[in-house]
Write a protein that binds this DNA or RNA. Structure first.
Length: 868
RNA sequence: GCCGGGGUGAUGGAAUUGGUAGACGUGCCGGACUCAAAAUCCGGUGCCAGAAAUGGCGUGGGGGUUCAAUUCCCCCCCCCGGCACCA
């Protein structure tokens, strides 16, 4: 072994060895159980960021650990290559999105390889290639014929100046990001996946997912949002509306129906349109409602506004006339575009009624609570304890009884019925963008929307285009959209919208099993590898991506392509990588963000930061918060710089040590140096041992007390690390346990032949236990400790139960719950002996001060608490 | 606004099933080595009082359950993720 730890050499050598032996090629033929380990594939944005390093290191640790535990591991990698940033880059730098994307992939692939991931690169998948997306188009045409995909109109953010649709993130304070024009909502035709048809199953199957975090399942349940409620029809008041008809609403609180004092409709609702024709001020208000974006967060937080239409509907049960209002918080796209308002028992309606002086009518009472129109109280919305009041024949009924009575009365009048509903909406996938998968539809004036026949797939996205930022690029390319109708042969127009990029990422996990299949979306190998045993990715994907992928799995299952109901058996959601921010105030209250690498932080005598200066000019900078690494806050640390300076193993070790995977991870330069120091110490300890000659690892024989204690700690550590890597997935504590073990070895200085076999045993175990985390280092350590063996063939170390046997244990003594001392006792000591010893203990006597113990609690093997 | 998560020394975090709060790392203080510095190694380090022994306090704030609460329950404050066209 080299005397010094030289990561550059050993990492290159280890990677070369893995390449030469095709070590991570996943084979279908194997007598071992399979383990499919998948990290969310990256968007090729340019270069690797710390979030990627964290994600892929976690995946690699689990992959290598499972390999050592005897699994046939498959860990693939690919590229989520379609998306908006490529078009933005094209606008900024005048490079075609395809060229930009492919060159980013080249660079990032080199970076990923330098991390030493045990990836089977032969399975690489790139979503922007026709080889990949043709199968997405193929599935689309199948689903279209089945009716799972349909067309309807939907609202988008419209930039009237650039004449283009904007993504939510491109709308900043209600204006287009490039033009600065006020954004408005516009209804356009789009294709939808009928995900609501699978809502019930998507909800129910969450119960199968024992390996998913409870929080993610809860978020998905709430997102799907199954509710039990009632359709209610309010007959039109013929005098004001002038025609027959009903206004339909859905409510989860039919028990409050007798408290309805008005109804509210969306700006686009037919009744609103009708009323606006007579009332210019209403028309103006409707126009105002159409301003602004479509994001739900904006709609939910904006000021609630409304206007009376002057129209009326009648209450379905008591025939009362109720005014129809237009309100900006009611959206046409959701449900019927109308809601019934019960100001007394809904907080939003309450505010609205107060603002516009609409009547508030109590219809629910809770015992010992008194109702007042003046201020909202939380009990007004209480379903559990309320009973009906001011509700005629329903007075005195509780929630469920009123629900049943009112809905059955509505049904007998044909003015409504019970219905369960989902909050989940169908998935609109049309995008008026260039860099995405073309939607395989041809529009024919005779035949309508015709799916592209299988033998004409794929519809290839042209790669030579000019992106202008206005309009849709494909819609300006006749060579793309001019075509013949596959049915009647007459001149037709190809669809120029592309698909939501969430579609590609909804099935890539399946494609990895059969990446080279040219005859189908996936082949029989999918049945062998799926489901994914471990999926790893950011918590920000908890709802959309994971729900869409689950949905796609069911769609593919129903097409006979895959088996099983769920794609991902176990899920690990990793936290963000965060770093301190620094800035200077500039004119116009703009902040100039300064990279942490360019800043010197001053601390007081206890290490607390007291100020910071810019290295370049020595002048102060302001210390900001610790936030997610991002370009906008300029607080990113380039992983490449860390790999170049310390090596990939240090980067990997720090990432795994600084926090458990699910928490956010704070970047720390000195923490990185600490990780590097630890690797140097492991290297030195192994080197110094090997220099004196390698020996066989300890097997059996008499040992000194110190050697016995070291072996006890060793095997306790193996037990803990095995559990930490396997069950708990807390890599930070696994590393800490190895650090403690190395510290203990450092204090063990016996040089007898037997002692050296114990040292060999410890060093071999450390090399193996650290292997999943710092595989290059372990590869080199192993070459020194066991020159004849390849580390890749080694199993995870096994616990020697005989080393764990302890004769004496420590018991903690408490008096009234406070720690007062401890006892070392024989492990076999019984309860009576323990109580006796505890009462006799000096510190216990002192704190009892003669008082008679009322109770003695003995927790075997842990503590004794004497209550006086 | 709605849904989900989090808050522990100077600092990142540990405490796995209600049972010794602060493992391990960083920083800081002291020492060894050195002409000196860096690197390395050794020791100390929750806060308050005390020379010490020791005692009290302490897991965002307030209350509760329990022999015992970072852990369970209720209320409040702050921070973060998602909200359907960022990925």
């Amino acid at each position: 072994m080299q005397q010094d730890y030289q990561p550059r050499n050993i990492e290159a050598a280890a990677q070369q060895h893995w390449d030469n032996t095709q070590a991570f090629r996943a084979a279908e033929q194997s007598d071992k159980p399979k383990y499919y380990c998948l990290s969310m594939f990256p968007y090729p944005s340019g270069k690797l960021h710390m979030g990627h390093v964290r994600n892929y290191t976690i995946g690699d640790v689990l992959s290598r650990y499972h390999r050592m535990k005897g699994f046939n591991v498959m860990q693939p990698m690919g590229w989520d290559a379609f998306g908006l940033p490529a078009e933005n880059a094209a606008l900024a730098n005048n490079v075609p999105p395809a060229a930009w994307t492919y060159s980013n992939i080249d660079y990032m692939k080199k970076q990923l390889k330098s991390l030493g991931l045990g990836v089977d690169w032969s399975r690489e998948v790139t979503t922007c290639t026709p080889a990949y997306y043709r199968w997405e188009q193929w599935l689309f045409t199948r689903l279209f014929k089945k009716g799972i995909i349909y067309k309807k109109t939907s609202s988008v953010n419209w930039d009237p100046e650039d004449q283009t649709v904007l993504a939510n993130e491109q709308v900043i304070d209600g204006r287009g990001w490039r033009s600065g024009a006020l954004v408005e909502k516009r209804d356009i035709p789009m294709y939808f996946f009928r995900i609501t048809q699978y809502a019930e199953e998507l909800l129910a199957d969450l119960d199968q997912l024992d390996g998913w975090p409870e929080q993610v399942k809860t978020m998905q349940r709430n997102w799907i949002g199954k509710s039990y409620g009632c359709d209610v029809h309010f007959p039109y008041d013929k005098a004001s509306i002038g025609s027959e008809g009903v206004l339909k609403v859905y409510t989860t609180r039919p028990d409050t129906l007798m408290g309805v004092t008005y109804v509210a409709v969306a700006a686009e609702h037919p009744l609103a349109t009708q009323a606006a024709a007579q009332k210019p001020e209403l028309a103006a208000f409707i126009a105002e409602c159409k301003r602004g974006g479509t994001a739900e967060a904006d709609i939910a937080t904006m000021e609630k506004k409304g206007m009376d239409t002057g129209l009326f509907v009648t209450h379905p049960l008591n025939g009362e006339k109720l005014p129809v209002w237009v309100a900006n918080y009611v959206l046409m796209g959701y449900g019927e575009g109308a809601v019934m308002a019960v100001p007394a028992h809904d907080e939003r309606d309450f505010e609205f009624a107060q603002k516009y002086e609409l009547p508030i009518k109590q219809s629910i009472a809770v015992k010992e609570q008194s109702f007042s129109n003046a201020a909202w109280q939380d009990w007004y919305a209480d379903k559990e304890h309320g009973i009906c009041v001011n509700s005629g024949k329903y007075d005195g009924l509780d929630f469920q009884a009123a629900f049943d009575a009112i809905s059955s009365d509505l049904q007998s009048k044909s003015l409504g019925q019970k219905r369960t509903q989902f909050r989940l909406r169908d998935w609109g996938i049309s995008r008026q963008r260039y860099w995405g998968c073309p939607i395989p539809i041809i529009h024919c004036t005779q035949c309508g929307d015709v799916p592209v026949p299988e033998d004409q797939l794929p519809v290839v996205l042209p790669e030579q285009v000019t992106i202008t930022g206005t309009g849709s690029p494909l819609a300006k390319m006749p060579e793309f959209f001019e075509c013949a109708c596959p049915k009647c042969g007459s001149k037709a127009r190809r669809e120029t919208d592309t698909m939501d990029t969430f579609v590609e990422s909804s099935w890539y996990y399946a494609r990895y099993t059969s990446p080279d299949c040219t005859t189908s979306m996936v082949d029989e190998r999918a049945k062998q590898w799926l489901p994914v045993d471990q999926y790893i990715g950011g918590i920000e994907h908890a709802i959309l991506h994971l729900l869409y992928a689950r949905f796609f799995h069911k769609l593919m299952r129903d097409e006979g392509l895959v088996q099983g109901d769920e794609p991902f058996k176990n899920l690990l959601t990793q936290g963000m990588v965060i770093a301190p921010t620094f800035y200077r105030e500039q004119e116009g209250s703009k902040k100039l963000w300064i990279n942490p690498a360019e800043v010197d932080v001053k601390t007081d005598e206890r290490g607390r930061p007291v100020g910071a200066t810019l290295l370049a000019d020595g002048q102060p900078v302001i210390i900001g918060g610790t936030e997610k690494m991002s370009k906008s806050k300029n607080n990113g640390v380039d992983p490449q710089a860390i790999i170049d300076e310390f090596g990939a193993d240090t980067a990997r070790l720090f990432m795994m040590f600084a926090a458990p995977p699910e928490q956010s991870l704070e970047w720390s330069d000195s923490g990185v140096e600490g990780s590097f120091r630890f690797l140097k110490r492991v290297w030195k300890a192994t080197h110094d041992h090997v220099e004196q000659g390698v020996v066989p690892a300890y097997q059996r024989g008499e040992l000194s007390a110190a050697a016995k204690a070291l072996r006890l700690q060793l095997h306790q550590t193996i037990q803990k690390v095995d559990d930490d890597l396997g069950r708990r997935k807390t890599f930070n504590t696994a590393i800490a346990a190895n650090m403690e073990l190395l510290n203990a070895l450092g204090k063990f200085d016996e040089q007898t032949p037997y002692a050296r076999t114990v040292a060999q045993e410890v060093l071999e175990a450390i090399a193996l236990m650290l292997n999943p985390i710092v595989p290059h280092l372990s590869h080199a350590l192993w070459a020194g400790l066991r020159p004849a063996d390849d580390l890749l063939a080694q199993p995870f170390p096994k616990v020697d139960a005989s080393a764990l046997v302890q004769d004496e244990i420590e018991i903690v003594l408490q008096v009234n719950g406070k720690l007062r001392g401890s006892l070392t006792v024989a492990k076999t000591a019984d309860k009576a002996t323990l109580e006796q010893l505890a009462l006799a203990h000096e510190a216990v006597q002192k704190h009892l001060a003669g008082a008679v113990p009322k109770k003695i609690i003995v927790v075997p093997g842990r503590l004794i608490n004497i209550v006086a």
